[in-house]
Amino acid sequence: MAGLTAETPHPTAVTLHQASRLLEIAFADGASYQLPCEYLRVLSPSAEVRGHGVGNEVLQVGKINVNIKAVEPVGHYALKLVFDDGHDSGLFSWQYLYELGANYESYWQKYLNELAAAGASREPL
């Protein structure tokens, strides 16, 4: 996780919409994103999801109904998202949240393609 630099986008507002399962985040450069809880969960920067190196990623399945229970600031550089399935180990840096928002369509499609290739589902078992 890269440290803060002058180029790191800084959030101006973070709002959790639990009813619609969205995390809304606005940045100082004017960018604003509504990121689904499921999207954030399956792309968590945690070792549980990313593995401990390239090729060790763990495909997250059955997360369509996941929600965020809590949003906790971590210093001045990240958020800890506490999901209702018990997952809470990923620290989402401002840079990573910005990247997730800016690349939502391509990252989400890649995830859907990986699910299809694995014969897996977004639906819980």
Rank of each mutant, 00 (worst) to 15 (best):
R21W: 01
V42E: 09
Y111W: 14
T12S: 08
V66G: 09
Q18K: 15
R41F: 08
L43H: 15
A6V: 03
K80V: 05
V71F: 13
G101M: 03
P36Q: 08
A70R: 10
P45Q: 06
L115K: 09
T15N: 14
S20G: 01
F83R: 10
L100E: 06
D85R: 14
A26K: 11
A6Q: 04
D84Q: 10
Y33K: 03
L81K: 12
K63Q: 15
L59H: 12
H17K: 14
W94Q: 01
P73W: 05
G62H: 00
Y77V: 02
G3M: 03
G51W: 09
A2L: 01
T5Y: 06
H87M: 10
A28S: 14
G53V: 11
G3D: 07
P11I: 10
L91N: 12
T5D: 07
T5R: 11
D85N: 15
V74S: 09
Q18T: 15
R50K: 09
R21F: 01
L112N: 11
E57N: 13
K110A: 11
E114A: 15
I68W: 14
A120L: 06
L35Y: 06
L115F: 00
L35D: 05
L35F: 01
V71L: 13
R41K: 11
D88Y: 09
Q34C: 03
H76V: 05
T12N: 02
Y96S: 02
D29T: 10
S121W: 06
T12R: 09
L43M: 14
G51F: 12
H17N: 15
R122H: 14
Y104M: 05
L97Q: 08
N56I: 00
N67I: 00
H10V: 09
F83K: 12
S106W: 12
K110G: 10
V58Q: 07
S106N: 08
R41W: 08
N67W: 01
H10D: 03
G86H: 06
V42K: 13
H10C: 05
A13P: 00
P11W: 12
A70S: 04
P9R: 10
Q18E: 12
V54D: 06
L115T: 08
W94A: 00
A2E: 03
A118S: 13
S46R: 04
K80N: 14
K63T: 14
G53S: 06
V58W: 08
Q60A: 04
G30A: 02
G75T: 03
V42G: 07
L35E: 01
S20T: 14
W94Y: 11
Q95C: 01
R21N: 01
E48S: 07
V42F: 07
R21V: 05
Q34L: 05
H52Y: 09
S89K: 13
L4T: 02
Q18G: 07
N113C: 05
V66K: 11
Y107F: 06
W108R: 13
A120P: 04
A102L: 05
A116V: 04
F27Q: 11
T12W: 07
